[in-house]
């Protein structure tokens, strides 16, 4: 197990380096430069000065080396637009994104897995068909459209939920208030992961249910819910855990549009703004965070896999 863990850790570090290298290159090679250089009044001399100030006049490998060296000391650099350390900006925004992503993940797992099990247990029932239909819908509905639709329905027409933001202005930061504000964005964010988790749970359960040991369990008269939850679920969960691991980056990084529509003061919006304004340090800072989440997510999945399925450890 130890060797397996070390090997996985090494691979993760390598992936991190590659991700940051590639992103660094892509961001810098994208057409259009930092927004601070877009002022039409700047002369070429001004532009060159600014570029030199920011270190953008150096060759790309040198720039990457400097950035990576600073990163190792915990310095992510300064935002061009906000004129603040990137770490400050991340500290402000990351918790908000994590709250939303956590709620969405919880929702997706808590609803998705039981729904998948139920679908598998009652294959080809009306429940199965309607859930299949809803899942396909959930995967294919564009989030920006669904988000606006929800706002119009729940806030504008019914007046049930606050339309955007994290807290009601001037009401203090109450947990209940936060939960109300979170309902719609978390639902929209959870929709597609929920559908995917449900689909994977269903097919994985169906595979397991066909196996001999389940027939044996049933033959010896074990009650159905014990068959499903004790015997079948444990094995059926392995691919589902993988899927959840793969969904993590979607939840943390993929909430750009949702954060914009619901005015959620999170990292996704910061990422989008920074990308449009070519605020390189911010883009890189966010990349590091998201890459860390992805890599950590995959690592956890791999290790959990090892726990759930002892055979994998000896590979």
């Amino acid at each position: 197990m130890l060797r397996y863990t070390i090997r996985r850790l090494g691979a993760s570090a390598l992936v991190m380096i590659l991700i940051t290298m590639i992103t660094f290159a892509i961001v810098q090679l994208a057409p259009g430069g930092p927004a601070i250089l877009l002022d039409e009044q700047l002369s070429q001399q001004d532009r060159d000065d600014i570029r030199a100030n920011l270190g953008l006049d150096k060759p790309l490998p040198v720039q990457y080396y400097r950035w990576a060296k600073a990163l190792l000391t915990g310095d992510l650099g300064n935002s061009y637009m906000e004129r603040e350390p990137v770490s400050h900006l991340l500290a402000q925004r990351l918790p908000n994104t994590l709250i939303l992503a956590g709620a969405a993940l919880l929702l997706a797992v808590a609803v998705g897995i039981p729904a998948g099990i139920l679908s598998a247990a009652r294959t080809h029932s009306w429940w199965d068909y309607s859930f299949t239909f809803l899942s396909v819908l959930g995967i294919s509905i564009p989030t920006f459209w669904f988000g606006i639709l929800l706002i119009i329905l729940c806030s504008v027409n019914l007046g049930l939920l606050p339309s955007a933001g994290m807290y009601t202005l001037g009401a203090g930061n109450q947990v209940g208030d936060l939960l109300l504000h979170m309902v719609m964005p978390a639902l929209v964010l959870a929709l597609s992961p929920l559908a995917e988790i449900a689909r994977y749970t269903r097919s994985s359960m169906l595979n397991v249910i066909k196996l001999d040991y389940i027939r044996t369990a049933r033959a010896k008269g074990v009650v159905e819910y014990r068959v499903l939850f004790r015997h079948a679920l444990k094995n059926a969960l392995i691919p589902v855990v993988t899927v959840i691991g793969l969904l993590l980056p979607h939840l943390v990084g993929g909430s750009v549009i949702i954060e914009k529509i619901f005015a959620w003061p999170g990292m996704g919006r910061l990422a989008a703004d920074a990308a449009f304004k070519r605020d390189y340090p911010v883009v890189m800072g966010i990349t590091v965070v998201i890459a860390l989440v992805v890599v950590a997510g995959n690592l956890t999945t791999d290790l959990l896999y090892g726990c759930l399925n002892p055979r994998i450890r000896w590979e």
Binding site: I148, I151, V156, G165
Partner: peptide, 11 residues
């Protein structure tokens, strides 16, 4: 309120 999306503003 910082609201980047015009549709949200109208809502």
């Amino acid at each position: 309120k910082v609201l980047p999306d015009a549709n949200t503003q109208i809502a």
